[in-house]
Amino acid sequence: MSGKKDKVEMAEEESIATKTEEASENEISLSEEELKALCREHVCPACDVMGEAKEERLRALADAENVKKRLARETDELKKFAAESILSDLLPILDNLDLALDHAQNLEACKDFVMGVDMTRKMFLDTVAKHGLESVGKAGDEFDPNFHEAMGVEQVADLPDGSIAQMMQRGYVLKGRVIRPAKVMVNKLD
């Protein structure tokens, strides 16, 4: 039996070899443009496979565009608030300059000193304002929990109810973002 199998297998191998030789003799050489044209002719534009491939390509392009936009937004945000930590570290210096001015304001002997501290404070405020830092809240303004932190209530007759009666500590905003809320006393009329 093994002899018959060997003969059959040999005949099949010869047949395959013959077909391969014939195919290589009949090979047609096509340029790349001709090959692309043939492919376009044989692919049906309404074919599901082509439609799915097109949708997948469009989704990939949309995802790439979304990633590009998100990275641009994050980069802009990073640039906009890059100085936030440094400016928030400088706020105690402004607080101390304000305290020095408040305590020495009525001392006649320290008039030149007060003027120097005031000039330094103004220069400091001008410098940080160039980077987008602004102070928020002053007595008489309406209390806004987005920018103010209520420390208590006071009763001041000439101020409207719900307004700031007294500033305990200045608040600061960097380009619209609260760095430190202002600590205030809120006017409460009975």
Rank of each mutant, 00 (worst) to 15 (best):
K7E: 10
A11I: 13
E12S: 06
E13S: 11
S15D: 04
E21D: 07
E22V: 15
S24G: 03
S24K: 15
E27D: 13
L30N: 04
S31E: 02
K36Q: 04
H42Y: 08
H42S: 05
P45R: 13
A46M: 09
R59V: 06
E65W: 08
N66Q: 14
V67T: 11
L78E: 06
L78G: 06
K79E: 09
F81H: 10
I86Y: 07
L87R: 13
D89R: 15
L90T: 03
N96M: 08
L99T: 07
L101H: 02
Q105K: 15
K111V: 12
F113S: 10
M115K: 15
D118G: 15
T120D: 02
K122T: 06
M123F: 08
A129M: 04
K130Y: 01
H131I: 05
E134Q: 14
A139V: 15
E142S: 03
P145M: 09
N146E: 08
N146P: 02
N146V: 05
E149C: 12
D158N: 14
L159Y: 00
G162N: 07
G162R: 04
I164L: 11
A165D: 00
Q166C: 11
Q169A: 07
G171N: 03
G171R: 00
G171T: 03
V178R: 03
V184Y: 00
